[in-house]
């Protein structure tokens, strides 16, 4: 299972903004700064936006930020116990395919817990 065009990825604790695991490159070569930014975005979406709380149990699934050069995908990792983790993948805009990446990422986030 591979994500075409992936430049780097990490698993981030979004309450603290700490990358518990990282691989590949990060924006500005700084995984810790990327994790802190990831946490800010997830917190904002979870706690301050109305989108994720419009309907009961309508939980946050993906956050996708597109830039001219790349895609940044965030997906919470659901565990039965308290963990508050989000999977972050940075994709190259030219090599990456957003739909494929999103699909694979869903499987990856599930497999992290299911295997």
């Amino acid at each position: 299972m591979a994500i075409p065009g992936a430049v780097g990825a990490s698993i981030v604790d979004y309450t603290t903004g700490f990358p518990v695991a990282t691989t590949g490159a990060a924006p500005n070569d700084d995984h810790e700064a990327a994790a802190a930014g990831t946490a800010d975005v997830v917190q904002a979406a979870n706690s301050r936006s109305l989108f994720v709380s419009a309907v009961p149990h309508d939980l946050l699934e993906d956050l996708i930020i597109t830039t001219a050069g790349g895609y940044h995908l965030l997906r919470p990792v659901q565990t039965d116990f308290d963990s508050r983790l989000v999977l972050y993948v940075w994709l190259d805009r030219v090599l990456g395919n957003l739909a494929v990446a999103r699909h694979r990422m869903q499987k990856l986030a599930d497999d992290l817990v299911a295997t």
Binding site: M1, A2, I3, P4, G5, A6, V7, G8, A9, S10, I11, V20, A21, T22, T23, G24, R104, L108, D111, L112, T115
Partner: peptide, 13 residues
């Protein structure tokens, strides 16, 4: 161990 999982996913790179 955790890293290995992500690396598998990013093998295309």
């Amino acid at each position: 161990v955790l890293l290995k999982r992500i690396r598998t996913a990013l093998r295309a790179l």
